[in-house]
Design a protein around this nucleic acid. Structure first.
Lengths: 344, 344
DNA sequence: TTGTAGGCGTTATCAG
DNA sequence: CTGATAACGCCTACAA
């Protein structure tokens, strides 16, 4: 700013003695401007303190440098990790992130989608594959590339990156079975679509081994927390006192179960096996360390942005790409019954 | 959209048979448009699917409905809670949040400040009172209200809401002393300015009781984690085997200390008192429950937005407001030595 | 490599 | 209460 009024392109241009468009070019496509001019212009920009006006740019070019990111929760540390990846990848680029928070409501997601698309974003990152019908069609007619994260599935809008929650839960359950547990229990909270698919994975693996029982399932719509894990475990063990292992749909619950087991003097892993999901940092640090399913959240955010940038560069080219980041069952002491133990 | 091209104000206007400005007014200042027209216009908007262009609005009015939020980290659950409060408060308003992530770097903060201010935000929420000199002066000359969160201190730019990290740490330390601990240790990670002030609070309280010793201090620039808590505790107890209590600058570290204490069969709270900071949900759920300093993060985010909206409404009125949200030492079993125990 | 004209969609200003 | 006109700051085209 200079005497209150905004410094514009033409101010810079006038200072250097060229036309505004040249300054614009020096900024956006430097290779089209002579070196000499470029230097003068850059000096003038510093001197005058010119800051481009994104609104004017957006209006004139009907493009923005904004990448919209729509996720269900900012508090959930799973998304926090994804966000960290996103911010890291975006940092070296001229793009900005605009964050939207659906709070697990498809309706809110739809609204956000409308608002975001109204801003002509350069690209969009959305969470999951469970958009409402209207949401889905908004995405399909979007004039920017779209990346769906957190999950793999059928029919990507453009690009999809994540892993199969079904398979991940299935693998964890198989691990419990391999460790010799027979009375497998399932603990779920929030029960959004991704959680449901984890339940299906558990159910499938347990049923295949003839070990599934409705009695050993506890779920709630409430959001997860450590204390909720303790509480649900109390319910669970009342329903089914003979249970010998719990698969929890996330690590908070698992930690709550472990604390409750300690309170009740149930030895982990001998009397009770515990498996979490996500493999938050604390799982390896816990005493005993808790088995969990590692997922690649930071990677996911980072690569989502990278692929999006590519798609932006070529113009919506990637239609149909699916990247499965996989998962990894981290076997730790909390499920090391009988066998010789675990890594970590 | 209709046949690919964007629906504009004038499209709506033409449809109704009025001029564009009337439609604009029907949207922004309905009371200045006759009821009849308002209804027709609103019908036309729905029919045509008109979505206002924020860029055009911003350019024409040099105003936006964007509230910039600049915080050091998205992963840290402390800020996640603040964000939740912010999003909640903003939800019912026409404002949007634009998030910036400094990663604890004053330089990055400065850059973000410049970018954000270039967007003519309606308001700004920044974290803390430790802006760089240039950052500070950017804030002071900003043409929008500014709220500083997380902390109280001298010289608010406009509005400030938070609590005293110094006093909070001091109170926690006094609690440890009152519980009969005498060999007080301090554990800190990241050691950003807020953490430093917590250290000062600890030091002051300990020194006043003649209980401060450099030997029982361990700090690192690394970011906190549960496993780091375990690791630092190992260092600490090597340096000072006789320590009987640890004040940790956050709950992750405290949890790590507790796990390590369990591993070493050090009884908590008898042999070792543990106190965390922030009072994350898991602290009350842990076994034993861990003493911590509760802070009002959700509230802080929510009220920051509310105060900001007020200031926006009146136009930068609030200059000088300081809101101290206080804190609360949650006394739990992890520091209940000798005495009869704790609540929770 | 540089410049000119015109317009992006909205709102401010001033009239009626 | 409604309308005409002129910005807002930049970029797309086309031209030189």
């Amino acid at each position: 700013m200079r005497d209150g009024r905004k410094v514009t392109l033409s101010d810079v241009a006038a200072h250097v003695g060229v036309s505004a468009i040249t300054v614009s070019r020096a900024l956006r496509t430097p290779e089209k401007v002579s070196l000499k001019l470029r230097e003068e212009i850059s000096r003038a920009i510093d001197l005058l303190g010119y800051v481009p006006d994104p609104a004017a740019r957006a209006l004139a070019s009907s493009r923005t440098d904004v990448i919209g990111v729509i996720i269900p929760s900012v508090t959930n540390s799973v998304f926090a990790d994804v966000l960290r990846g996103i911010y890291t990848a975006v940092e070296k680029t001229p793009f900005d992130i605009q964050l939207g928070n659906t709070r697990y409501s498809p309706l809110k997601e739809e609204k956000l989608l409308k608002v975001f698309l109204g801003q002509k974003p350069a690209g969009l990152i959305v969470s999951g594959i469970d958009q409402s019908e209207r949401g889905r069609s908004l995405l399909e007619t979007a004039s920017c590339p779209v990346v769906q994260i957190m999950e793999t599935g059928e029919n990507p809008v453009d690009i999809m990156i994540g892993f199969s929650h079904y398979e991940a839960a299935r693998a964890a359950t198989i691990h419990l079975i391999e460790q010799g547990y027979r009375k497998l229990a399932f603990m779920g909270a929030r029960m959004d679509p991704r959680t449901q698919r984890r339940f299906q994975g558990f159910r499938q693996a347990a049923a295949e081994a003839g070990l599934f029982s409705e009695e050993r399932v506890v779920t709630t719509a409430e959001p997860s927390s450590v204390s909720l894990g303790s509480q649900l475990f109390c319910e669970l063990i009342e329903q089914a006192p003979d249970l010998d292992a719990v698969f929890c749909i996330n690590d908070d619950l698992a930690l709550g179960v472990m604390f409750e087991a300690q309170r009740r003097r149930l030895s982990v892993p001998d009397r009770l096996g515990i498996c979490g999901f996500n493999d938050l940092e604390m799982m390896a640090a816990a005493e005993p360390p808790i088995t969990s399913v590692r997922t690649f959240r930071y990677e996911m955010g980072k690569r989502a942005v990278e692929m999006l940038l590519e798609a932006i560069a070529v113009g919506r080219g990637h239609r149909g790409t699916i990247v499965d980041l996989g998962f990894e069952v981290r076997k730790r002491a909390s499920t090391a019954r009988g066998s010789c133990g675990a890594s970590d």
